[in-house]
Design a protein around this nucleic acid. Structure first.
Lengths: 212, 212
DNA sequence: CTTTAATAACTGACCAGTCAGTTATTAAAT
DNA sequence: ATTTAATAACTGACTGGTCAGTTATTAAAG
């Protein structure tokens, strides 16, 4: 018993939170909040369950950390890309729709969003956080750009907030479809193809002749 | 203690299943599958928990019964209303969108659908059932009508299935919004107003000049 | 009297959260 | 350099509570 062998664990205080959040993201995405077991999150993060509680006080606080980590990188990118666009509304749509399609197809927004929808009733603070930090700003941003375009005569009369919902809705549907029905055999939607066709409908359906 | 008083319970074998399913629908809608407690379902149905097991073998079978009860009345009604419509596609949209809006606003499709989305990963048979019995037929029905309208030259070129998704998506979004974000203070969408504006965009964005 | 719908107390599994003890790491003392 | 003391990251067995499902018993109904 003189050979030291591999150490049972390392002390890596700085790295643990990120690793735990990443493992939690994966498990929450697969199982939802209630279905996610802390033992499994700990196992995937390579620590014991007890270690989770050194960094997060409760399961719900861990859930919060996951949601925040999924939101932060994306919201800022989209906002900045939209606000810096100088051209007419038709061109903005041509930029915006593929951007949204890309975020939906690749980021953690989709599975975490589904989780919020599924468990929001049981964890209202989560739904509130998701709404206040991600959804409402995004709807507000798009609504504002539509209202401005209407003032320039580029977009037809109509409620800007409803227009914003119409623009976003097919992407929400495609993501939920992928998360919910594709695993049980449904044919997926090609999100980029959807974005292209949606762009066609919106340009013909929303724009006046005054836009390019 | 000789007074008989009211009986402790009645034996109503024929009525129990419907009452239990109704109570289960309410509790599942509020809490989701994992969050719904059988004790609460039994209490609301006016029976003991043991009585549930006289009519349903497991919680999941009860969930199945709830899903079926929410689907059956609606799918048939919508299908029949659509298939009996004789006019051009523009007129069909004028009929279809308010119909969908009504179903979404009033029926149990919305909360149960949200439940399926939220818990589908953990209960794949449920997601499969919902897809096969409700969603796929509806998408197929709408897609077929779009393809027929394209053959008549009334609708522009494009994938009929994607068009169907574009038509349905805002209603899905409005319902999820109501279920998820309105309870935490978000401004609701007026689903009828959304239907009206959506109709305008679709008519201008999908139809050719050949339709009325 | 027999049948069976219905009850209510019960069981066993599961799991979030706890805590007493262990081990890696750092640093002070020799 | 080497030993020793102090610190804190980490572990894993444990607990208290919850809940789906079971069963012994009661009572309604013919």
């Amino acid at each position: 018993m003189l050979q030291p062998g591999p150490p049972k664990f390392q002390r890596r205080k700085d790295d643990r939170p990120g690793e735990i959040v990443a493992a939690a993201l994966a498990v929450f995405s697969e199982k939802g909040f209630a279905g996610a077991k802390l033992d499994e999150i700990a196992r995937r993060a390579g620590v014991s369950k007890g270690a989770l509680y050194l960094y997060f006080e409760t399961k719900e606080e861990l859930f919060h950390a996951v949601v925040k980590s999924a939101i932060a990188p994306n919201i800022a990118m989209v906002r900045q890309r939209l606000e810096s666009f100088p051209g007419p509304f038709g061109g903005l749509l041509e930029l915006f729709l593929p951007t949204i399609a890309g975020v939906m197809a690749t980021s953690a927004v989709a599975p975490i969003g589904k989780m919020v929808i599924g468990e929001g009733r049981n964890f209202p603070e989560l739904a509130r956080y998701w709404h206040d930090e991600l959804v409402a700003p995004m709807i507000g941003l798009v609504s504002g750009m539509i209202a401005a375009a209407q003032a320039r005569g580029e977009v037809r009369a109509g409620d800007p907030r409803l227009y914003a919902a119409q623009i976003m809705a097919p992407f929400l549907m495609a993501v939920l479809w992928r998360e919910t029905f594709v695993p049980v055999g449904a044919e997926p939607f090609d999100i980029n193809q959807l974005a292209a066709q949606h762009l066609g409908v919106l340009k013909a359906g929303m724009l006046t002749g005054a836009s390019s």
